Measured scan of single mutants.
Amino acid sequence: MVVWDEDGFQGRRHEFTAECPSVLELGFETVRSLKVLSGAWVGFEHAGFQGQQYILERGEYPSWDAWGGNTAYPAERLTSFRP
């Protein structure tokens, strides 16, 4: 999975191949867009795999509404991930 700290695949970029309990440890404040290259990941609103969670299947997510636009409580950012 590849993530960016700005919408539209802009800004700082990082690629994950294993779980990440906090993007803050990588110098990111948040993740605002992402691409899942294969498989599925779970993205969490807060560090430590806490808060609202989203199943992220293979594909592109250019902004928060692409992963959470249909929920009652959409998270505008993700800060931890698990494959």
Rank of each mutant, 00 (worst) to 15 (best):
V2M: 06
V2L: 07
V2E: 10
V2N: 08
V3K: 00
V3C: 07
V3I: 10
V3L: 03
V3W: 00
W4V: 00
W4L: 04
D5G: 03
D5K: 02
D5V: 05
E6I: 04
E6D: 05
E6F: 03
D7F: 15
G8V: 04
G8P: 03
F9I: 01
Q10R: 11
G11L: 00
R12Y: 04
R12A: 07
R12L: 06
R13I: 05
R13Q: 12
R13S: 11
H14T: 09
H14S: 12
E15A: 09
E15G: 04
E15F: 11
E15R: 06
F16N: 02
F16A: 04
A18F: 06
C20G: 03
C20D: 02
P21I: 06
P21N: 15
P21K: 15
V23A: 05
V23P: 01
V23K: 00
V23T: 10
V23G: 02
L24V: 13
L24W: 06
L24P: 04
L24E: 08
L24A: 15
L24D: 05
E25A: 10
E25N: 06
E25S: 10
E25V: 08
E25G: 08
E25H: 08
L26R: 05
G27S: 07
F28I: 14
F28K: 02
F28L: 10
F28V: 10
V31T: 02
V31C: 05
R32Q: 03
R32L: 01
R32G: 07
S33W: 00
S33D: 01
S33V: 00
S33A: 01
L34R: 01
K35G: 01
V36R: 00
V36L: 02
V36F: 04
V36D: 04
L37G: 04
L37Q: 07
L37I: 10
L37K: 05
S38D: 15
G39T: 00
G39M: 04
G39C: 06
W41Y: 06
W41M: 00
W41N: 00
V42P: 02
V42L: 07
V42A: 05
G43V: 09
G43D: 02
G43F: 08
G43T: 03
G43L: 11
F44V: 02
F44L: 03
F44C: 05
E45G: 03
E45S: 12
E45C: 10
E45A: 07
H46D: 12
H46G: 12
H46N: 05
A47C: 12
A47F: 06
A47Q: 10
A47H: 06
G48S: 09
G48E: 09
G48L: 07
F49C: 04
F49R: 02
Q50F: 07
Q50A: 15
Q50G: 05
Q52A: 13
Q52K: 13
Q52F: 05
Y54F: 13
Y54M: 08
Y54A: 12
Y54L: 12
E57V: 08
R58S: 10
R58Q: 15
G59Y: 01
G59M: 03
G59V: 01
G59A: 05
G59P: 03
E60H: 12
E60R: 03
E60A: 12
Y61L: 01
Y61K: 03
P62K: 13
S63C: 12
S63P: 02
S63D: 11
S63L: 05
S63Q: 09
S63V: 07
W64C: 14
W64F: 09
D65H: 10
D65N: 15
D65T: 12
D65M: 12
D65P: 15
A66M: 09
A66P: 04
A66D: 12
W67A: 08
W67N: 06
W67I: 15
G68R: 11
G68T: 13
G68I: 13
G68V: 14
G68A: 09
G68K: 13
G68Q: 13
G69I: 06
G69T: 09
G69S: 12
N70S: 12
N70V: 13
N70A: 11
N70L: 08
T71K: 12
A72C: 13
A72K: 12
A72H: 11
Y73S: 12
Y73V: 14
P74G: 11
P74I: 06
A75H: 15
A75N: 15
R77D: 10
R77T: 10
L78D: 03
L78Q: 01
T79D: 03
T79F: 07
T79R: 15
T79A: 08
